Simulated assay, not measured.
Amino acid sequence: MTTTARRGPGRPSLTERRREDTRTEVSRVAARLFTERGYDATTVEDIAAGSGMALRTFYRYFRAKEETLAPLFAAATRDWVDRLADCPPELGLVDALLAAYRASVRHSRVTNGIDEAQLRALLRMMEGHPAFRATWLVVHRDSEDQLRPVIAARVGAAPDDLAVRLAAGTANTAVRIAMERWAVGEASVRSAEEAVAQALREVASGGLLAP
């Protein structure tokens, strides 16, 4: 008698995990090629070849090259949200958001090999490339939805409460804008972490993210 292992609720299947692993590996290759050669000079064929796959196979995972960084961006935001959920409940929301972000940046640097110089280069590439920027914005829109239940649990409210939605939207937007400003040299800080800290404290001072 053959038994089939059952998946827990919300747990991806082995096929789904393998697909996501492949997408992430292609994303790492694309990030490396974009920073080495530039966005315009890197073709879909380059990314497919660098990933060791046929062009036809590439299109099973991505529709175009501007989508290739989505897995890395999405993994970073998921890790940020997961780390926020694990922060001690006595830690204020702004401090928890910042601590989770800093830990997530360090994790991404180790697991994906993306240092601040590469991150800055990738974010700068969005300027003048609307399709690439659209991918970045979609990832951040998704992260806002992921933040809501975690913030709700920390403040003892429902995920759909207006205050929770505003807090999630404000935190997410603050991080995105801070990273974009830092990338193009507008922020008077030395690192993305400092830029994010500055932005979160700025919005907190207005009471939007106060506990």
Results as ranks from 00 to 15, higher is better:
200 L>V: 08
191 S>F: 06
120 R>P: 02
101 Y>A: 12
16 E>F: 00
188 S>L: 13
64 A>H: 08
67 E>A: 04
101 Y>I: 02
14 L>P: 00
185 G>W: 10
143 S>L: 07
131 A>R: 10
15 T>D: 03
38 G>A: 10
147 L>Q: 05
84 L>V: 00
187 A>C: 09
144 E>H: 08
173 T>A: 15
85 A>L: 01
87 C>L: 09
131 A>S: 05
49 A>L: 14
62 F>K: 05
146 Q>T: 09
119 L>E: 11
104 S>W: 00
47 I>M: 03
187 A>L: 11
112 N>I: 00
180 E>F: 10
73 F>C: 08
23 R>A: 03
60 R>I: 04
150 V>G: 04
3 T>I: 13
93 L>E: 06
157 A>I: 13
157 A>V: 03
190 R>N: 10
18 R>S: 05
66 E>K: 08
159 P>Y: 04
5 A>K: 14
28 R>G: 12
81 V>K: 10
28 R>W: 03
58 F>C: 02
112 N>S: 14
205 S>E: 10
118 Q>V: 04
207 G>V: 06
29 V>T: 15
151 I>K: 14
166 L>G: 08
165 R>T: 15
20 E>T: 10
112 N>W: 11
56 R>S: 09
128 G>V: 09
184 V>Y: 11
90 E>A: 13
188 S>G: 10
28 R>L: 00
169 G>V: 11
83 R>C: 12
24 T>N: 07
156 G>N: 09
70 A>I: 05
6 R>G: 11
7 R>M: 01
1 M>Q: 08
15 T>H: 09
76 A>G: 04
198 Q>A: 11
41 A>H: 14
166 L>S: 07
109 R>M: 11
169 G>A: 15
196 V>K: 06
44 V>E: 15
90 E>M: 03
27 S>Y: 03
35 T>Q: 04
89 P>W: 04
48 A>Y: 02
198 Q>M: 08
30 A>S: 13
106 R>F: 06
124 R>D: 08
79 D>K: 12
199 A>S: 13
27 S>H: 05
117 A>Y: 01
133 R>K: 10
24 T>I: 11
185 G>E: 00
32 R>H: 10
1 M>C: 05
89 P>H: 13
2 T>R: 11
17 R>Y: 00
15 T>C: 01
58 F>L: 02
111 T>N: 13
190 R>F: 01
38 G>R: 07
19 R>K: 10
